[in-house]
Structure formats: C-alpha cells, structure tokens
Write a protein that binds this DNA or RNA. Structure first.
Lengths: 139, 139
DNA sequence: TCCTACAATGGACTTTGTCCAAGTCAAGGG
DNA sequence: CCCTTGACTTGGACAAAGTCCATTGTAGGA
C-alpha cells in the first residue's frame, strides 16, 4: 500500500493527509469507484476533505499513470487502481456491475496499419457489454 | 436519407417536423456529434425546437438501433449515425478528433469463455487512443 | 524554527442531462 | 375535410458531475 505513497514521494509529491487518504481509499478497494464514492469514503477518515481536493488528487494520479480513468458508465468517471496490469472491462447493461477481464490477444494489434490514418496509437480501451447472470435471469 | 424516415414511419413513429430535422442533421453529417451540437444544428432549421425534444429523439433513435451512442469523450455522449456497419473508434488525445475504424478480427471473440463470468456478452466497444498526425507533430 | 511554494478549501459556476405539467399537432375515423 | 385523441413538444426547473478561483493552510527545506 505505501508502495504507492513511496512512488509518489519519489516523484516529488508533497504527501498531505488528504492525498494519503485518497491513495488509501483507492488502494484498499479493488473496485471501480466514482469520484464521489472516493470522496464519501475519504470523508469517513478525514471529515474536512473537500470535493475539489479529491477531484484534483484523482486527476493527478491519472496523470502519473497510477490510476486508470474508465468511462464505462455514461454518468460518472470511475477510477481503477489496477493501472499496472493491462485489462479491460465487462459491464452489465442491467445493473451496471463491472468486472475486470483479460483478452486472449492484444487488441492493439487488431488495428491494421491501413486503418491508423497516420495516428500514433498509444492505447486501447475495450468495453464488453452484456447481462450478468442475475440480470439475464430476471429478463 | 428518407430511408431513415421511411423506416421510422413503418415502425409507427409519428413524423413531426422536429424529428425530421434531427434525423436530417444526423444523416447529413458523418461525424460524431454531441447532443448539444445536434441541437445547435437543428435550431438553424427549426428555431423553436427545444433541447428536451432533441434529447428525447436521440434516445429513441438509439433505442431503435438507428444511431449509436459512443462515450469516447468523458464530457458528453456522442451520436454516431453509422449504426448499421459495425466499427470502432480512434480518438486523438490531443484535439479530440474521432475516426471510425475497422478491426481485422471481431473483438467479441477475443474474450475467452473463462473470462465471461456467466455474463451473456452482447456487444463490445473498442476505443483506440493516440495522437493524430498534427498533434503528434506539435508535441 | 521560519519561509515559501505548493496544496486544500468551499462556494460559485458550468456542462450535461432529466423531469414534468401544460399545450400542440399528426394521422386515422367519420 | 374536419374532429378527436393520444402521442409529441415545450420550456423551465431541477439534478448530477465536474471545474475554477481567491483565500487560507501547511509540508518540507534552509
């Protein structure tokens, strides 16, 4: 856990109580939290923390590549602390549940040269949509 | 163009001036517009059209499968009139430009059975990110 | 310990989207 | 051709998610 804080410190981050709390929240739960959920959990430990700070800190963590921003949901961005292992997402169209999944081959390679239009392709985000067992049964 | 309106009529849609305008805007431009951009263009032809109607109509078109909703952008949903040809998106991280692209293989097949967790997987959305030639040159 | 640059605060503001009660109108029946 | 009716539209209020900024606070180096 303090791995993360250590990495941040060596990159010149000033470690404040607020940043520590945000990092701990992300590190503690391996789920995909929205900014507001992160804020709610952070407030439990540090009641005065402001929403703006949580947004700032999340943005910085994304910049540093420590956390991934995913927009599987059209409502709010979600933050995925599992940034160092490439993976994709499987989203239930019914209840919104999200699972991390791994594809057989690297999807980056599936884009032929002729379809790149001169772009420098850096990354790919794959979102599978479907119904989880419970929602499929209810339908 | 009136292909679209014809299809809608046969499905019991009441054809109103507003719906016609929205359909025309989408059909006329093969770019990915946000709801607000659709509204702005619709207003040029039909000044009294309201935002709520544009949102409603876009939602209905998505329901009917005539238009795709893409969330490449974390700000607003974009609407892609090219719904009948399966394709994916290449987004420039610099300027936000979007291109439709086609992958060599079907990405749906790249998710192994063991990674499906009992989900009924229906669809997949692939977003490649990178830099367009102009932004790459500027960097 | 003191300073100072960097960080946090909180409240106003913006953007994107939804909701609803009331008014309007497309299209089928007479 | 007009009437009727229920589907459609309207506009404004509301909500959720996120950004901005001037002010206040503080981590960490000298």
């Amino acid at each position: 856990m303090s791995d993360l804080l250590e990495r941040l410190r060596t990159r010149g981050w000033r470690i404040t109580a607020q940043r520590r709390v945000v990092a701990e929240v992300l590190d503690g739960e391996h789920v995909h939290l929205t900014a507001d959920e992160v804020h709610a959990r952070a407030v439990e430990r540090l009641p005065e923390i402001s929403r703006a700070t949580v947004y700032n800190t999340l943005g910085e963590l994304v910049q540093l590549g420590e956390v991934l921003e995913v927009s599987t949901d059209r409502r709010a961005k979600r933050y995925d602390p599992n940034a160092h292992r490439p993976h994709h997402h499987l989203v239930c169209a019914g209840c919104g549940a999200i699972r991390d999944v791994h594809t057989a081959d690297d999807p980056l390679g599936s884009l032929p040269e002729g379809e790149r239009f001169g772009f420098t392709v850096l990354d790919v985000e794959v979102t599978f949509r479907g119904l989880c067992p419970r929602c499929a049964a209810a339908a």
